Each structure stands twice: as C-alpha cells, then as structure tokens.
Amino acid sequence: MKRWWLWVYAPVFLLGFVSVAAWWVGYRQGSALWLLLGLVLAIAMSFVMEQLWPYDEAFNQGQDDAGRDGVHVLVNETLNLLAIGVIPLLAAWVPWQLWPQQWGVGWQLLLAIVAADLGITLVHYASHRWSWLWRLHAVHHSVTRMYGLNGLMKHPLHQTLEAMGGVLPLLLLGMPYPVAAVLAFAIAIQLLLQHSNVDMRLGWLGKLMAWAPRHRFHHMRYGQAGDVNFGLFLTVWDHLLGTAFDAPSYRMRVQDLGIGSQPDYPVDYVGQLLAPFCDLPHGEAPPLPPGLRQPST
C-alpha cells in the first residue's frame, strides 16, 4: 500500500489541488482568495506526508529555520496576492487581445503552465549565469535540508523577476484573471512538490516532471555541479538546454546541500534579505563526493 501511494502521491497532489482551483475560480467564478486556504491545506498535507514517508529523516529535523521560512512564505505569497489583484487593471490597459479565451479553462491553464514554465526556467537558468541575478537567487540555495517550504523560500526581488519572465508576457497577451490566479496557485503547488521530502517513486513520470527526485540535485553544494535541472514543471527545457541530470542510485543528504563556497551564508530572514547587497566572503567549493559524478553542463 505504501509503495502504491509513493507512486501516485505527486501526480494526485498536483492534479487534485490544481483541478479544484480551476473548477472553483475558472468554472464557478469563485473568489481567488479561497486559493490561499487551498495553499495552507496543501502545505499542511505536504508536512504530514513528509513525516509519514520521508526521503531522509534528517530533512524533517528543524535547523531553527521554520520561523524564517514561514516569513518567506508569508511575504512572497502576499506579493503574489497583490500581483493577482493588479491583473484587472493591466487587462484594462492592454489594447489588444491575443489570448485564446475561446478555449476551455483547462486548455488555457495548460497553455499558461507550459509557457510560464519556459519563461521561469530561462530566468532561473540566467540566475546561475549572471552574478547579479545569482546574488538574489542564492537565498534559495542557502537551504541545508529539503522540504516543501523550501520551494516558497525566495528573495522577493528574485521571485518578482521570475514572475516577470514567466507570467508577465502572458498577461500582456491578455491572459484572463481566473487563469492567472490558478496559474499562480499551480506554481506554488509545484514548488511544494519540487522540494518535497516525500520519498516519491515516479517511474516514467519522473523523466517528464521536474519533481523532487530530480530537483534535489539542483541544490548540490559542489560549485557548478548544481547548475542542472532548472525546469519548474517539465524536464524538457533542461534536455534542450543540456542541463538535465539524474543519478538515481545516489541519495542526497544534508551534507550535500547549500552553497559550498559560502558555508556562513546568513540564516535569518533580514540577513537573507540584505545578503544580495552585501560583500559576503567566498571560499572554494568542496569537491564532489565519491559516487556522484560531475554533471555535464
């Protein structure tokens, strides 16, 4: 029974929450504010599943980071909510309508997810190539354990840049408010799954979807070894970029995570908010451990 649940957990979690959100906001024209309650429920369910079926028990052990991560989530999701509230104003300003509003809500949402995934992935990729973007993105990479809330732990400026790269072009095409609201919700749900400590068994879906088993390698602390698996929803972008990587036999541990060249990176919220604008000390990144080959980038 447990093995069966580990196979279906990720797709059921994603499709279940996003489908209900699409039905409520897209078909019933319900208030998008209820999606906040859905996100709280998803976070709670993620915590429960991580306790029941952990990939690594050590990832469930707090490092005095729960409060900090909670502030990250509160700030970033509040910014998302404010951004969603501005959508009707933007729609009134855009003088054209290029979005396929004649499609069903489900098809519009699928198009939005794939298109936004490409834009967010490219911003993510650039964040590992351009030093000024990396300074903002490094906050996300400073984590030393992998669990659901890590996905929502970002510098607010970097989250804004990712949103501009992935979602703003769709809004300028005329993506309607309900689709945009559900898209933002779907991104949050996917981030929970991408950083989850649930011991997922995904089979062929794991080759298609950028869930935790692949994304954990993106958080390797060994210099440029972590410049892999940038995709948010799909792995296809990494195959096209040449950054796809998987090592199924290697078990990621606490000692594999973080920023190897900055072991003393700030751990408090205010420190992380200011870190991109400070001249923090750098050292040499540690070498790859035995059993983990150097990914090709």
Rank of each mutant, 00 (worst) to 15 (best):
R28K: 10
L15K: 05
A126G: 07
H195A: 05
G271Y: 07
E77G: 02
E162T: 04
M200K: 04
A163S: 10
S127N: 10
G260R: 10
A10P: 01
V143R: 13
I120C: 00
H72N: 10
I189G: 00
V182I: 01
H140M: 04
R253Q: 10
A112R: 06
H219L: 05
F277K: 11
L234E: 06
V86A: 13
Q108C: 02
W24Q: 11
A285N: 07
R129W: 01
L280Q: 13
L109N: 04
A181S: 07
S46Q: 15
I113P: 03
R251N: 03
T160Y: 09
R28E: 13
W130K: 12
L6N: 06
Q255D: 09
V267G: 10
S261C: 03
N60C: 06
P289E: 10
L133Y: 14
V270Y: 07
A116K: 08
E50H: 01
P156Y: 06
R28A: 09
S261R: 14
R201W: 05
D246G: 01
L110I: 10
L170Y: 01
P176R: 04
V123M: 09
V254G: 02
G38F: 08
F277Q: 11
M164P: 00
P263D: 11
A210G: 06
W134N: 08
L14Q: 01
F217V: 11
G119P: 01
H128K: 12
E50M: 13
M252T: 08
H195G: 07
A115C: 05
W99Q: 03
M220N: 14
L79Q: 02
V270S: 03
D256E: 08
V12F: 06
P286I: 13
P95S: 13
A138I: 15
V12C: 09
L273G: 11
G258Y: 11
F17S: 03
E284I: 12
L240F: 15
A186H: 02
V18K: 02
Y9F: 12
T121S: 02
R135E: 15
H137D: 00
W107R: 01
V86I: 13
G271D: 10
L136Y: 00
W24E: 00
A188I: 08
F47E: 12
T235G: 08
V105F: 14
N60I: 02
G26I: 07
G174I: 10
D264W: 13
N60L: 05
D246S: 09
N229V: 15
G148C: 12
Q190G: 04
V270M: 15
G119D: 05
M153I: 12
H219V: 14
H195M: 11
H219D: 13
L172R: 01
G271S: 14
I120H: 01
L191N: 03
W134E: 08
R253P: 01
Q102T: 07
D117C: 01
W132T: 14
V182E: 01
S131P: 01
Y265Q: 15
T144Q: 15
L241Q: 04
D65H: 15
F245S: 06
A138L: 15
